[in-house]
Design a protein around this nucleic acid. Structure first.
Lengths: 354, 354
DNA sequence: TTGAAAGCGCTAACAA
DNA sequence: TTGTTAGCGCTTTCAA
């Protein structure tokens, strides 16, 4: 099944040169006579030779692989980040070792433990590990952190304050005054940034949470929100907004009629749900690309910037979850009568167990 | 930034043994005196030694890595497959090299080209390459194919005929007679299986397409479907069903009131959209696990089964996109008047470009 | 421009 | 049970 692939020695013999010449022909063409190189390439192609990156990695200590760790591969937030990173890696001739930490700091640690010796550099997209742990692995290999600022570790983040400002401006234009912030994970750097930015932009803002940053978390938030609703909500991310809207709707509220909702990320589903979400989009692809690009630059000798994170711009995508504030009602007609504990999940029947 | 890590020689010297003993202590404990091994481990831990998988891979020809190639990392269909494969790999002490082919056969080839020398085995989840190309790389490394049957290459598939049967039975119980099948990619093995199974189960069925297997493809299908609607539709996958339903709704039809829709896969979004989708769920996690498990088994000397693909069961998840057929109407009141070319996307305004 | 030779860190006979 | 000794495939001085 597995035939032994040819080595530089096989090529050398067939081409009538030394193995070291074959090595050079592939590793640093230009350091070998053009015609010789040409011949070597031809012979190599005939033999089906391909450099063995592992063997190359032993003497050089470089593997031409970089690692990318995401906290949840099922989270659409990472899709474009992954692609951006992969683009940058591929262009530089690098292979990307993609790992799913599945929202577990332990898993992330273990995966990193494994990968750290195998890769030349590492991109951490939304790490769930404490800063100290990140600095620890940054001692072993160049590391770039995404969506988070870690002292002494190069990082790339989106302009959260600016994103919040755009959201607030948009809501203000629609006549909204009071805003409720639905908080995500306390460990999330972005969550802190967003809440602080919102409070700065609109001092009267209120904060609810933290909630789990997914659809169910948003649903849970609805009950709390209903006790003292505002006409506008800013949610930590799109998934939470979706859950919130579903639950509010189940409770009799109308979105955006009664409540306008803005969230963050602009995942694909944001455009698919009803109402489609108004959301602060992050330059995901650019972020992945910048992360991989920077780590590659450092691998190749660049001096990492220490003047704080690289900040990428955000933009507001206006869809259907925000609307003009209704001024002719002071207290909501909804939510005061029934607050169901969980009406979010539409009855799912597993017909397979019949 | 990167300090040179200790090797077995450093450990050997510090522990007062030969390097080969250190090697054994890690590679095959049991082949070394317990106390010696204990001491070696302690010393190694103190020195911060960790085996270098690359160096280990050179003499053995094994890297303890397996590759997993998915055709689109953004496709939620793969989320659980990836996790299942990662579980199996991790349990066996393997690292998974995950690659996104981004729906391009060329990309897939290139990635494989790179990875093939680096990994001990490869799992191809829904490959976009021709059978011959797959067999080609299967010559170099053990390969297991998912969601597709390739002659002479071990594979894992879901029971499509059974899934179709469940869908048809469900629709029949609801009184539906005529069924339209919305086809996915022609290159898709599963698509062919589903259509043939449907035609076998219900000879009068009609086929529309192929369409691109995403939301936009489903939207496109709506116009075609509206020209000669049936009361029930079976869509190639959930994404297409979502697109179809959106567009039909925009055209004035009600789902499931006027049209019942069943699709395949049971991606996460299937439960989030309105109406929530009735769908044939594939055992995604089990499939990923089986794929990685099998390739690992072959890597470790098992003889691959040649008696055809390993077939995993499917089940029907009944949600809200299917309902009793309305018998009191023969021709639909919708779709005959206006068939907008594209009413699917809710007006998206990019406020960032202001 | 090319060749010879010494490793990179580890494993695997073969001896002891 | 442990040590010795060759390599694995490639890169990289150092000479030629």
């Amino acid at each position: 099944m597995t035939e032994k692939p040819p080595t530089i020695y096989d090529v050398a013999r067939a081409a009538g040169v030394a193995a070291s010449t074959v090595s050079r022909a592939f590793a640093r063409p230009g350091r070998v006579n053009f015609e010789t190189a040409e011949r070597i390439r031809r012979v190599a192609a005939e033999l089906g030779y391909r450099v063995n990156p592992l063997a190359r990695g032993l003497p050089t200590g470089r593997t031409s692989m970089i690692g990318l760790v995401v906290s949840d591969i099922g989270n659409p937030f990472y899709t474009e980040i992954i692609r951006g990173a992969q683009d940058a890696a591929a262009e530089a001739g690098y292979t990307m070792l993609l790992t799913d930490a599945r929202e577990s700091g332990r898993r992330e640690r273990e995966a990193l433990e494994r990968a750290v010796t195998t890769v030349d550099g590492i991109v951490l997209a939304t790490s769930r590990m404490p800063d100290a742990a990140i600095r620890g692995i940054a001692k072993q290999r160049p590391v770039v952190v995404l969506n988070r600022a870690v002292t002494d570790v190069p990082s790339v983040v989106t302009d959260n304050p600016d994103g919040v400002r755009r959201a607030v401006d948009h809501l203000a234009e629609l006549g909204h005054i009071g805003i409720t912030y639905l908080a995500g994970p306390e460990a999330s750097w972005a969550d802190g940034m967003r809440w602080r930015s919102l409070r700065d932009a609109l001092p009267g803002s209120r904060r609810l949470g933290p909630y789990s940053p997914d659809v169910s978390g948003g649903g849970e938030a609805a009950a709390d929100f209903a006790r003292a609703p505002t006409s506008a909500v800013v949610a930590y991310n799109d998934a939470m907004a979706i859950g919130l809207i579903r639950q509010l709707t189940a409770m009799g509220a109308r979105v955006p009629g009664d409540v306008s909702v803005v969230s963050f990320d602009n995942i694909e589903a944001a455009a698919l749900v009803t109402p489609a979400l108004t959301t602060v989009a992050a330059p995901l692809h650019a972020m992945g690309r910048a992360g991989a690009g920077n780590v590659l630059a450092i691998v190749n000798g660049a001096v990492p910037r220490t003047t704080g994170p690289l900040v990428l711009p955000s933009r507001l995508v206006v869809r259907a979850s925000t609307a003009q504030r209704r001024r002719n009602r002071t207290s909501p007609a909804w939510g005061t009568t029934n607050v169901p504990g969980d009406g979010g999940a539409s009855g799912e029947i597993d017909a397979g167990s019949r």
